[in-house]
Design a protein around this nucleic acid. Structure first.
Lengths: 214, 214
DNA sequence: TTTGACATAGAACGCATGTTCGTGTATAAT
DNA sequence: ATTATACACGAACATGCGTTCTATGTCAAA
């Protein structure tokens, strides 16, 4: 159904106002902007736009209005972006920083990905690789690894392991075999190492690697 | 200035609420979420967070509250999603698919990234790696490489090269030296190869590598 | 001419919302 | 002992805000 000029002005104003203010407009602000003096007329027009699928409204709350993204095929909402805190770095000679509470960390630089790449963001954080020691995991100095915090690993998972005796962090695929741990480099041309389970401290598993080339 | 636990809870709630609802919470919603029964206590804490630069407030308006981005360089371009067509695969024994016009390709699967990772999307496409032949570029079977179409390379760029005599695609850093081409593996422990420039066909440069671990 | 759908408009209402006031406790400085 | 500051809290207030009510106008169809 074609939109009237008034409808187009309303949608355009809502989009601009929301982008500039980081919150949506009220019914009275919409009326002031598009020249409607009555809140019930603004409300009537918003009802029409909601019925036609251009906006979504939350009842009774102030500013309970959001645009629905009708472009493309998948009615994509801005919630499709996942912000992942970059907590620090991963290097051979130190344990990795680990998020220390269930609260999402605040005040960190973030890596922003889409939800099609990172579906569940609980316990997800990013580390930047320092040094060449992860090369046997095919991970280069400067790469970003996206980690999921966990303290136990399943066979085959690529995990960050702190080796207590050696005082070293390594990224390798984890296998528990007949009472010992095989740590298998991702590079299939390289040999695994075998360590006692007591020497191993699982710090998280790698879910994604990102390498930016300048 | 270190934040109290209560301040951290408030900021975390504001961030989550705003992401999920696309509008910020009211003072009463913040109080209900972090266990503060008095609107003046919430207001007092918001004044402190505003003074310390964590939030910005618009006076007297409902939901007039926004987080201030204190992380790094302000790279964030929220809401900007870039859809990159996945044109096919890159493997050793075949030239790579190349976009054949300036029109954005249609009807392909797409990889969706944020504009903070991919700033310019002209000429950008994705390929999936097949085989172990790119391991000397620290790129694994199954990785996604994001390419920028170009037919000439600058020294040091990681490029997809079609070697005509060998009938082989390789990913290596390109150097033109004294009339011959040095192709340098990204893995610093491996030796370069030297080829005649006539044997080399530059097909694009790598701008990003993504490795998803299941 | 009548009817119904759509649109507009002002007014009023009930509740939402941010701000202010007065009071209390704890701690540090004087 | 006094004062200042930080933090906490309930209550009250003024205004914002979305919803509803009532009235009116336009237009197309019957």
């Amino acid at each position: 159904m074609a939109l009237s000029e008034r409808h187009k002005k309303i949608l355009s104003f809502v989009e601009t106002f929301t982008r500039e203010n980081e919150y949506p407009p009220t019914i009275r602000e919409i009326g002031a902007a598009v020249g409607i003096s009555s809140t019930s007329v603004v409300n009537y027009n918003l009802k029409v736009l909601e019925r036609e699928g251009y906006i979504a409204r939350d009842k009774i709350v102030s500013r309970g209005l959001k645009l629905v993204d009708r472009s493309g095929s998948g009615r994509r909402a801005k919630g499709d972006i996942v912000s992942i805190p970059l907590l620090g770095r991963i290097a051979a000679g130190e344990p990795i920083p680990i998020p220390d509470s269930d609260l999402p960390p605040f005040g960190y630089e973030t890596i922003e990905l889409t939800r099609s790449i990172i579906e569940k963001e609980e316990g997800i954080y990013a580390l930047q690789v320092r040094g060449d020691s992860m090369i046997d995991a095919l991970i280069h100095d400067g790469d970003i690894v996206i980690m999921k915090h966990q303290e136990e690993a399943e066979n085959g998972e690529l995990v960050a392991v702190w080796l207590k005796d050696e005082k070293e962090t390594t990224l390798k695929r984890f296998y528990l075999e007949r009472g010992r741990v095989r740590l298998q480099p991702a590079n299939p041309t390289m040999e695994p190492i075998y360590v006692h389970p007591a020497n191993v401290e699982i710090q998280g598993k790698v879910v994604l690697v990102i390498r930016q080339l300048n």
